[in-house]
Design a protein around this nucleic acid. Structure first.
Length: 960
RNA sequence: GCUCAAGUGGCGGAAUUGGUAGACGCGCUGGAUUCAAAAUCCAGUUCUUUCGAGAGUGUGGGUUCGAUUCCCACCUUGAGUACCA
């Protein structure tokens, strides 16, 4: 009987499906364990061998946990809203729902044949109305919430309204829009309903705001930054302009500090935490107010920095001036100028007549440059003096106000206090424009460069700060500023609120309609609001999003149904939102839905949430570090605040699997000919590298020339110059991509070698987290291993396993393997456990082991990795139920105890020979035995050893 | 520029706390089997070598009886991020 992997794998996949072997129950006596994969976007191309890597790893872990007696939740689903399906629809007219469904079917077939232990009864699809009903529900919850800084959590908007009614907004400590006018309780009650709504929108966790976007008029759509090349669209090369659009935003900034703090308690990789920290970008410092000395234009409007209530209690309330954010309040006496972003709203107000022309020209020039240009060009120093002066808070000296494009309007207050002696950019700016550079650091020479080393700072020439270090000076400066009412300690975050609107078709519709331009939520009992049908998936001619093409897209507030647009009367029937939600909406909470995927009353029942709690192990790619993995933490914290999920971090441990790269095959065409030379001959010619399909190349990098000739017509009559009768290709490791012809389809691997071989090989390639190249040639190694494994159990005449008692050697091999494999799984070191299996099978074959007492536990060890062959042999051993929940073998140290050790004998740290010595010998006895050895005398060559290091059980080192 | 990760045979990679560098596999070389090939099995495979031995984990230093492992500096590659005040 030979190892017929195709038949075996089909048989057991059918068995698992029919018996629902991996169905997880929401109640159990067993402890729970939740293993989650990042669910895939089902693209039309299907899976290549790189995709299953993380799924195989998580499947091994899930299966291991079942052997350990856990009730394991291991679900899978599809992130099925997205751009590719929409673009395909634009080109072909095929409804995205149709292509998505077909793609999912392909994915499912491909996943099934790899033998994953997913509980498919819990499958979710983000594009399914029964799923996105709850995405819409969460959106409404966010709309109905505000962030109370005093309690440090999200609260219901009705609480805020109560406060407004009782005392106005002056005592409210919320994370909200920057400039909100103060009002009293009386004023609040005097506002119209619409005015009240407008104010509330500034506090809600999801809100409408004017956002600058990259608008491409020719394509009629908004483009992401990376879709723009040199100021024109990547597709088509159309001009792109900055345009303000009203869009939904998510107030993720409210959670900046908690997102940062939460990283401390989760076991994610340092690299990933670091990039999230970086993205959140916390900086601690102070906001400082500088009154403006001259206002040539007379009356100025109220703005962010002169708003009522700002810096109350000081003697400058009501004064006009500039607020800056600084991380170095200790250097305040080093300020010699100030710089505003060219876009800063005060610029036009403070500029003097004499400087007006220069300033306006500069502002215009900056506006023309794209953000990308501005960022790329960091070397050129440019700026213009406004002619205006501000007053230093302490010295009261006048400080010239400049504008410069190195100051960004979007960060901090869009203005900086420039301390050239302590900041490189300020230093360069001052040098360039001949602005004085006062030195406020003791014992530091600043004639060549700025001094920005906080830890070695001693402040000088700074009045009350003299002699203080960075920490003390910062504290004192803030204290003095607060006393003056011209500043306060402040923490700034780089994290921006996330734009939540997309001008796309294939996404979740918003449960929103508009009354007099004000957004209204549809009551949750009427959800889902399903995506309308449209004729075309492109934006409308007037530039509205694709949903603008829908003819039935209005909300009837009487019947609570979606009705035809023609019925809109703006009295009871209103227009619905035309944008859709972004790709990250559905993926920000799906892990909770798996706990109770068919619930129609809630996104998951309280019982299910309480039982499963959170994800114990999450495996996925690191490319989601500052996208999905941040947004989902944000939503989880919000849902936690609302009391609907039990934990505020949803994934205890996260592992990033690396990418599997392709190994492209390259042939060399002699320039200007149709002649191709083998790799070793290419240097003698002027050649072009051409990539060809990797499937035509064997393990020795030799291409099958006949296949190549048949592959594409230009090769059919080409000439090939061989070496040693072979055509050898060059190889290049790069991303798998159709255009490099290096994509390997798992279907082919499964057909040729089986799913168990594929699983083992993907693990055997190298450490899970690492990037590593795929080369199909190497798979014969693990495939041969499976054949050897099979032969250990099954001979020509049938099963070879019997009841003979295991020998000492058998048990030693088995227990060594148990120990190593268990440790490997727990460390996610799957590559080394595959090696361990190979060693075990090689040894047991050598030992001619047929003992059931050894071979049965061995099967359990292997079953998470190669479940099909394990199930089959398990069945042949006489078991009638699946191996998947059998207890993992217990490791017994006593089988590994040795009586002697083959000591390495080193001379000056270099191992020269080994020597078998009893482990019962003490140091002196070992030393004596080693020194007596003839090879020792040979090595010493007559010298006397200076020192002999003996580490019993480890090593002997002779120095001299 | 900054942050993080990583540099080990022809290739993928191994080496729990510093203790026999190169496990396991691919490829390669030789042999057995075969009419032949595939498959399978056996032996060898870091480099140098005067066959005694010597060198060797990106480079240069350091700590140590002993360093792939710890420390310092540098080089290279990959990832992220960037005029963030």
């Amino acid at each position: 009987m030979t190892y017929n992997f195709n038949a075996i794998e089909a048989k057991w996949q059918k068995y698992w499906a029919e018996n629902q072997t991996f169905k997880a129950e929401n109640t159990s006596d067993k402890p729970k364990y939740y293993v989650l994969d990042m669910f895939p976007y089902p693209s039309g191309a299907g899976l290549h061998v790189g995709h299953p890597l993380g799924y195989i790893a998580s499947d091994i872990y899930a299966r291991y946990k079942r052997h350990q007696g856990f009730n394991v939740l291991h679900p899978q689903g599809y992130d099925s809203f997205g751009l590719p399906a929409e673009q395909y629809a634009i080109q072909t007219g095929q409804h995205p729902a149709v292509t998505t469904k077909a793609n999912i079917a392909t994915y499912r077939r491909q996943l099934d044949q790899i033998g994953f232990s997913f509980d498919w009864s819990r499958e979710v699809r983000t594009s399914d109305p029964s799923y996105y009903k709850w995405t819409q529900w969460i959106f409404i919850q966010l709309f109905n919430s505000w962030y109370n800084k005093n309690t440090d959590r999200a609260e219901d908007i009705s609480e805020l309204i109560k406060i407004f009614e009782a005392e106005g907004n002056t005592s409210v400590n919320a994370i909200c829009d920057a400039a909100i006018d103060a009002f009293s309780a009386g004023e609040w009650q005097g506002f119209t309903a619409e005015e009240q709504q407008r104010i509330l929108l500034q506090y809600r966790l999801t809100y409408l705001a004017e956002t600058e976007v990259n608008w491409c008029p020719a394509l009629g759509t908004v483009l992401a930054n990376d879709e723009i090349v040199n100021g024109v669209s990547e597709r088509g090369g159309h001009p792109v302009i900055r345009k303000k659009m009203t869009q939904w935003s998510m107030r993720i900034s409210a959670y900046a500090e908690r997102l940062l703090q939460g990283l401390e308690k989760i076991d994610w990789t340092d690299a990933l935490k670091e990039s999230q920290r970086n993205w959140i970008g916390k900086s601690v410092g102070a906001e400082v107010f500088f009154p403006i000395l001259s206002f040539p234009k007379g009356e100025a409007k109220a703005d962010a920095s002169t708003r009522a209530g700002y810096m109350t209690g000081g003697n400058n309330s009501g004064a006009r001036g500039i607020s800056v954010f600084t991380t170095r309040p200790d250097t305040i006496f080093g300020v010699s100028f100030m710089t505003l972003a060219p876009e800063h709203e005060l610029v036009s107000q403070i500029t003097t007549e004499a400087q007006k022309e220069a300033v306006e020209a500069y502002v215009l020039a900056t506006a023309k440059r794209s953000e990308r240009d501005r960022m790329a060009d960091v070397k050129t120093i440019s700026g213009v003096f406004t002619g205006a002066y501000a007053e230093h808070p302490f010295t009261k000296a006048p400080i010239p106000i400049w504008i410069g494009d190195y100051v960004l309007a979007g960060y901090g207050t869009g203005a900086v206090m420039s301390v050239p002696c302590g900041d490189e950019r300020d230093y360069a700016f001052a040098k360039h424009f001949n602005i004085p550079i006062p030195n406020i650091f003791g014992g530091v020479d600043i004639s060549e460069t700025a001094f920005s080393d906080k830890s070695n700072t001693v402040i000088a020439n700074s009045d009350f700060l003299n002699g203080l270090n960075y920490k003390k000076a910062t504290k004192r400066a803030i204290y003095e500023l607060e006393k003056l009412g011209q500043g306060e300690g402040k923490t700034n975050y780089r994290l921006r609120d996330a734009v939540f609107s997309r001008q796309r078709y294939w996404g979740e519709p918003f449960p929103v309609y508009y009354v007099n331009g004000m957004p209204q939520m549809i009551a949750t009992e009427h959800l889902p609001i399903t995506l309308p049908e449209v004729e075309k998936y492109l934006p409308t001619e007037t530039g509205e999003p694709p949903l603008g093409n829908a003819t039935t897209w209005a909300w009837d507030t009487k019947t609570n149904t979606v009705v035809a647009n023609t019925l809109i009367d703006n009295e009871t029937i209103f227009p619905l939102e035309l944008n859709t939600m972004p790709g990250w909406a559905g993926s920000s909470w799906y892990f909770n839905r798996y706990m109770d995927p068919t619930n129609t009353e809630a996104f998951a029942s309280k019982e299910a949430l309480d039982y499963w709690q959170d994800v114990d192990l999450y495996i996925g790619g690191s490319e989601h570090a500052t996208g999905h993995l941040l947004y989902s933490r944000f939503w989880q914290k919000f849902l936690f605040d609302k009391g609907v999920v039990p934990t505020d971090e949803y994934a205890k441990k996260l592992i990033n699997q690396g990418m599997i790269l392709g190994t492209s095959a390259i042939i060399y065409r002699v320039s200007g000919t149709n002649t191709y030379v083998s790799l070793g001959l290419k240097d003698a010619h002027n050649v072009e590298e051409i990539r060809v399909d990797v499937s035509m190349v064997n393990a020795s990098n030799e291409i099958d020339v006949d296949k190549l000739k048949a592959w594409q017509p230009q090769y059919s009559d080409a000439e090939f110059i061989l070496e040693d009768g072979k055509y050898i290709v060059g190889r290049e490791v790069e991303k798998m991509s159709k255009r490099w012809f290096n994509v390997v389809n798992p279907d082919d691997i499964v057909a040729d070698y089986g799913a168990d071989s594929l699983r083992l090989y993907e693990m055997f390639l190298g450490p899970l987290e690492q990037y590593k190249p795929w080369n199909t040639a190497g798979i014969t190694g693990v495939h041969n291993f499976l054949k050897k494994l099979w032969k250990l159990y099954v001979g020509d005449t049938g099963l070879k396993v019997d009841e003979t008692a295991p020998t000492k050697d058998h048990l030693k091999t088995l227990h060594k393997t148990i120990k190593k494999v268990q440790a490997d799984i727990e460390n996610f070191s799957f590559n080394t456990s595959v090696s361990t299996f190979m060693i075990a099978v090689n040894e047991l074959t050598q030992q001619k082991c047929s003992s059931k007492a050894v071979l049965e536990p061995l099967l359990i060890l292997i079953s998470p990795y190669a479940p099909h062959i394990a199930e089959e042999l398990w069945g042949q051993l006489g078991h009638s139920t699946s191996i998947s929940t059998v207890a993992f073998p217990e490791f017994d140290e006593s089988h590994l105890v040795e009586s002697s050790k083959n000591y390495p004998i080193s001379f000056n740290g270099k191992m020269r020979f080994t020597m078998e010595l009893g482990l019962d010998l003490n140091k002196d006895e070992i030393e004596k035995a080693v020194l007596a050895h003839e090879k020792t005398q040979e090595q010493l060559g007559g010298r006397t050893p200076k020192k002999v290091i003996v580490v019993p059980g480890k090593i002997v080192n002779i120095v001299g």
